[in-house]
Design a protein around this nucleic acid. Structure first.
Lengths: 124, 124
DNA sequence: TATACTGTCATAGTGTATTATGACACTAAT
DNA sequence: ATTAGTGTCATAATACACTATGACAGTATA
């Protein structure tokens, strides 16, 4: 996997798994890749994946079954949506707004952004 | 100063100075705070500020006068605008779009964002 | 029972951001 | 000439993310 240099790897792995859940590619109750398997896939150390999974376990989106592996919690998707939404609106959005103001980005520059938002208006 | 835990301090200091220039609070030709002074102000080590300034010197937005200090380059603002715009549109926007899609954020959730963009349409 | 999976823990090593200090050369002002 | 302010370089220490391995207990399956 291609990792961003500015963000910790174990956080990016968490984000990747969270994305899989939000996009419905991993369903509630389903088993996620084993620590060792994902480590090989992502060319990363076991301990790093372990750290991501431990974090997600604390967040209550996956749970462990001894000797078997990690599984997606029942309402993981709903909880994730709520968590991520709040993080985005409270922590990330202010910085985005600030940049748009300072760089004087207009509707033309951000055409795609506006389109993306509007396409969510008509999607239930 | 309050630093974000997820981003390197020397990069946040660079961003802060760049912001001052973009907002016109530091003008071309003007002297910026000395390495030692800013270090005390921000409660950070000299070397960390030095690293930020070295980076900005490489980026061509400030220049050094021996024994005196660092000064804002003539067309620093124009260059910064171009640089930051490109970074935002190419590196940050894709991730923002992805989150909006996954979290299904609509015009209501992002009301402030749309207003901010539109207020830039009428500003020359 | 043996084998091959699971997660987990412990230990050690590497790289890098940050801090803490000291020393030096250059410039401006008294 | 002295003093105080600039940047700059070198060194050492700390903290932490990541890697590399080995070992162990629980589980499933042949």
């Amino acid at each position: 996997m291609e990792f961003n240099e500015t963000k910790n790897i174990f956080l990016q792995i968490r984000d990747w798994v969270a994305d899989q859940i939000l996009q419905g590619e991993i369903v509630a109750g389903e088993k996620i890749p084993s620590v060792r398997e994902l480590a090989v896939d992502m060319e990363v150390n076991r301990n790093t994946v372990m750290r991501s999974y431990s974090l997600m376990e604390e967040e209550g989106i996956i749970e462990n079954k001894r000797g078997i592996g990690f599984f997606v919690v029942a309402d993981a998707k709903r909880n994730l949506l709520k968590m991520q939404k709040q993080i985005f609106l409270q922590d990330e959005l202010p910085s985005i707004l600030h940049q748009i103001e300072v760089l004087k980005l207009n509707s033309e520059d951000l055409q795609i952004l506006i389109q993306t938002i509007q396409s969510n208006d008509h999607a239930n």
